[in-house]
């Protein structure tokens, strides 16, 4: 058996709308080793959520369509699974925490019922027993057991996200997909929820794909980091490599846009421009139009991922020139 719990190879996902084809994911390769956490970083619209939904084979269809690629979960291709295999996998082997806790819970079912449903579906025990288990799970995420009889509208945002986490963890999945689990929450609650998640994952030896645009969260939680831009990975490596030996101009841009608490006077350097229209991606490197290092060559061909030593990969043709070095690294 492979060492990786998840291997995504050459994934291509399109959304075919009346207005044109949205190229959401364009050849994505990532893998997550067992009991490790991979952070997937990128702007809104980079295809992060679509990646997570692809792993569950839940890309909304129509208009979404997985055009090609394979997603190996424990060596088995999710995209080849039958409906019943998928149902047995979802929630049991892989669970997902959704971005917006305000809409992710069914407003007409009690919290307890919603947590118990997952247990009932996968562990084939009676409704009553699963409800008891649901209460335990609620306690585990820090909510009083008797709140299991409440409806989502009686919960605050942070509590709802805890409930969503309880649903995801109900069957102790091997892999957890967390889609911006803290974005919709207050900063103080964010820290609580992150700590809780990290703690639970460590204790249960789970792997996690953590999707976020918050580099602070990544630094805090992840073993590996993948940076995504316009449906492709532009840089991937261990957290240490990506944070301390940044290679891709886009990653550099992300860091430069980050306010620094220690050097308050420092000027922020924003990335100029906007993400390209996913219906009309530029030829060559999608980041080239916004890149201050871009050359003629960048607009010709899509750069392949190349190793920068060890587990660190980057997709940037500037490294054709052996002496190329990002400003960030040159100064440091």
């Amino acid at each position: 058996m492979s060492d990786n719990i998840l291997e995504i190879k050459d994934l291509v996902v399109h959304f075919e709308t009346d207005d044109g084809v949205v190229h959401a994911i364009n050849g994505l390769d990532i893998s997550i080793p067992r009991e490790k956490t991979l952070g997937l970083v990128g702007e809104t619209g980079a295809g992060k959520t679509t990646t997570a939904l692809s792993v569950l084979n839940l890309v909304p269809n129509p208009p979404g369509k997985i055009k090609s690629g394979s997603i190996l979960l424990d060596g088995k291709d999710v995209l080849q699974m039958s409906d019943s295999e998928l149902e047995a996998m979802r929630g049991n082997d892989v669970a997902m925490i959704f971005q917006d806790p305000m809409t992710a819970l069914n407003p007409v079912m009690t919290i307890g019922d919603q947590i118990a449903e997952s247990i009932e579906l996968h562990q084939h025990i009676s409704a009553k027993e699963s409800f008891e288990k649901a209460k335990e799970l609620l306690k585990m995420v820090g909510i009083a057991e008797n709140r299991a009889y409440d409806y989502p509208h009686q919960f605050s945002g942070g509590m709802r996200q805890r409930a969503v986490i309880a649903i995801a963890l109900a069957c102790e999945p091997k892999l957890l997909l967390a889609d911006e689990p803290t974005t919709a929450l207050d900063v103080t609650i964010q820290a609580q929820v992150l700590t809780l998640m990290k703690d639970l994952i460590d204790r249960r030896h789970m792997s996690m794909l953590l999707i976020t645009h918050d580099l602070g969260v990544v630094a805090e939680t992840c073993d590996d980091v993948a940076v995504m831009y316009a449906g492709r990975i532009v840089e991937i490596g261990t957290a240490d490599e990506v944070f301390n030996a940044t290679r891709h101009p886009y990653t550099e841009g992300l860091f430069n846009s980050l306010p620094n608490l220690h050097e308050r006077g420092e000027e922020l350097i924003p990335i100029k421009g906007l993400m390209p229209d996913p219906m009309d991606l530029p030829q060559g490197c999608a980041f080239a139009p916004r890149c201050s290092y871009a050359t003629e060559a960048c607009t010709k061909a899509v750069p392949e991922l190349r190793t920068m030593g060890g587990t660190h990969y980057v997709a940037c043709s500037a490294y054709d020139n052996p002496s190329f070095c990002l400003r960030r690294n040159a100064n440091g």
């Binding site: 069914n106 079912m109 449903e117 579906l121």
Partner: peptide, 29 residues
């Protein structure tokens, strides 16, 4: 189209169950 329908699918509920148990009662309002 609601997010909680995706949540229910992600739990591993069958299409039937998602539609009738989660969808219908909300749609009834």
């Amino acid at each position: 189209r609601q997010d909680y329908m995706t949540t229910a699918k992600a739990k591993g509920a069958s299409r039937r169950r998602v539609i009738y148990r989660h969808g219908l009662r909300n749609a009834m309002i």
